[in-house]
Computed example of a mutant assay.
Amino acid sequence: MIYLDNAATTLHKPPEVAEAVKNAILTAGNPSRGAYGAALSASRTVYDTRAKLAELFGCPRADHVVFTANATQALNTALYGLIWSGDHVISTDLEHNSVLRPLYDLEARGAKVDFVPADKRGCIRYEDMEALFRPETRAVVCTHASNLTGNMLDIARIGRMAHAHGALFVVDASQTAGAAKINMQGMDIDVLCFTGHKGLMGPQGTGGLCVMPGVEIRPLLRGGTGVHSYDREPPQEYPARLEAGTLNSHGIAGLYAAVGFLLETGVGNIAKREHALMQRFYEQVRGIEGVTVYGDFSSPARAAIVSLNVRDYDSAEVADILASEYGIAVRAGAHCAPRMHEALGTVQQGAVRFSFSYFNTQAEADAAAKAVREIAEE
């Protein structure tokens, strides 16, 4: 199988990731729940993973790296923990439902939400965002890169804009964590939400948020934390205030190994390889008669994603042909990005998404392009 659905999850991981998960399953106790060897070892692994993620993302404090089950939980934690009725929020048409649905719910509870519109290439104008700020604007919430088109936003520019207006900046890095350079301090990011199973190449069931000092997030969940057990309220200090319940220490051990691989290999080198594979595929399919490619490919700053349609075929039909006749795994449909599909005009047809990872090859990119050509010609 040629696996090109890495924007959903990376299938091929560094081998040390699986080994770390296996060892943790066999040896790890419950972190922060005991003073015996197995529990202390798990606690050390959890802390060391926080430290590696803080290094990777430019977060100034390891204890402000909070673990969740995925980016969806991280985004819900950030949004429900920061935004009240009466607050104003700015977001974009590029967003995944992990951002959109919490914002729609908060809007129903009395918050005000504005979306920066995207054009037919899936691009926004930063001037349009600037015009949306109000005195009551509490936060800007946006993705780093669209999971549908791969278009990447200039988050450093948005961060400066948000802080100039006294607003917080929350970033959804689901498509870029591990695959693009991110520095919270240099990019004025207040809360960075990430998942562990995509560009970070870790296990599913891992994710989290990095919180800059001084940003106070109300807990989304309440329960046991292993400390302050007699208090009615959760602990106030990070990370315990946002980590109710037992952590996925087995998955976190795998994430530790994955981040170690990323730091050793270099995020810049990974991004360069993924971009080259994406560009190789794009150059071969963009001129095929009957193929429509979506997104802006004029900038080298983008995620390694190419979404397209073949004539008027339903995107699911094309994906099925790719899987059954060519052994190529892609994703079709709406990709949980409804506003982007509205901007692209693909609500009914959906789109076929090819997404590349560090472990894909040039031969796989060529085979996928050849398959698209043959389907279009047939």
Rank of each mutant, 00 (worst) to 15 (best):
N97T: 13
A276P: 02
A62M: 11
Y3F: 11
S324T: 13
I158G: 06
L26P: 03
T246A: 05
N30A: 07
K198T: 09
G208C: 00
D366T: 14
A329S: 09
T361K: 03
G327E: 07
R232G: 11
R125C: 05
Y104R: 15
T292L: 10
A304I: 04
E233P: 00
I321M: 12
E377L: 11
L153E: 06
Y326M: 12
L263K: 06
V21C: 07
A257M: 01
D320M: 13
I375W: 05
K370V: 09
D320S: 15
F115C: 10
M187N: 08
Y294L: 14
Q348V: 14
M161N: 12
T92M: 13
R222Q: 13
V21T: 05
V291F: 05
C142K: 08
A351H: 03
Y126M: 14
A304G: 12
A111E: 07
Y238N: 06
I83C: 05
Q185I: 11
F57G: 02
K370D: 15
A145P: 10
P14Y: 06
A38M: 02
A253L: 02
G327Y: 08
S174N: 09
V99D: 10
V318L: 12
E130C: 01
H88E: 14
E127C: 03
G29N: 01
E233R: 09
V113P: 07
L262T: 01
A18K: 15
D48A: 07
V267G: 01
A71T: 13
H96V: 10
G186C: 04
T72H: 14
Y294M: 12
